[in-house]
């Protein structure tokens, strides 16, 4: 066999890697655009989970720097994230608003009773429309929203203690200073 034909397998493999690499970068959910950053929280008019007679709108999450957490009962990682949210609730005065995403409200109420609720209130996003407006890919996802209702941070996946302290806290501090300064 001559030398050049021995390079064929390598060439074929090169093409394969190229396809895989391109396909891979296309599929990466973490490369999702975060155009929502520094945009106002999308408008919505949805029911409250805790009080079905109450209608919530984007105005309800304005006023204070807050966390908005997208969760669902079908989401395994939400169970894991829950204790950290409870800790934030306990140890800070940061309001946490939940978006119960693509879920069955009755199940969600049971879930909250079982695992304890870290939320000030929950927005029922039954058909996932708000989640889509937010560009949510799955749950959990957490947004940091400033007092004017502008999204400042987006976190995909579980918020761990490190995430909160290294990513959220500095942002929150600078936001509150901004608020105090102005």
């Amino acid at each position: 066999m001559n030398r050049r034909s021995l390079l064929i397998p390598l060439g074929v493999f090169g093409v394969l890697v190229l396809v895989l690499a391109v396909g891979f970068t296309l599929k990466d959910p973490h490369l999702l655009p975060s155009q929502m950053i520094n945009k106002p929280f999308p408008a919505f008019t949805l029911k409250s989970l805790e009080n079905p007679n109450r209608t919530l709108t984007e105005a309800d999450i304005k006023g204070k720097v807050s966390l908005v957490n997208v969760w669902a009962t079908w989401c395994a990682n939400c169970v894991i994230e829950n204790p950290e949210l409870l800790r934030i609730r306990r140890e800070t005065d940061l309001p946490i608003y939940g978006i119960n995403y693509n879920d069955d409200p009755a199940e969600a109420i049971k879930w909250l009773a079982h695992y304890k609720s870290p939320y000030d209130f929950n927005i029922v996003d039954h058909d996932g429309r708000l989640g889509i407006d937010l560009g949510v890919y799955g749950a959990p996802e957490t947004f940091l929203v400033d007092a004017n209702g502008v999204i400042r941070l987006r976190h995909v996946g579980i918020v761990s203690r490190e995430d909160f302290e290294d990513k959220f806290l500095p942002a929150i501090r600078s936001l509150t200073q901004e608020g105090a300064g102005s």
């Binding site: 894991i80 204790p83 950290e84």
Partner: peptide, 8 residues
Amino acid sequence: SLPIYPSE
């Protein structure tokens, strides 16, 4: 997932 972890 310390210090607080799920009970179930």
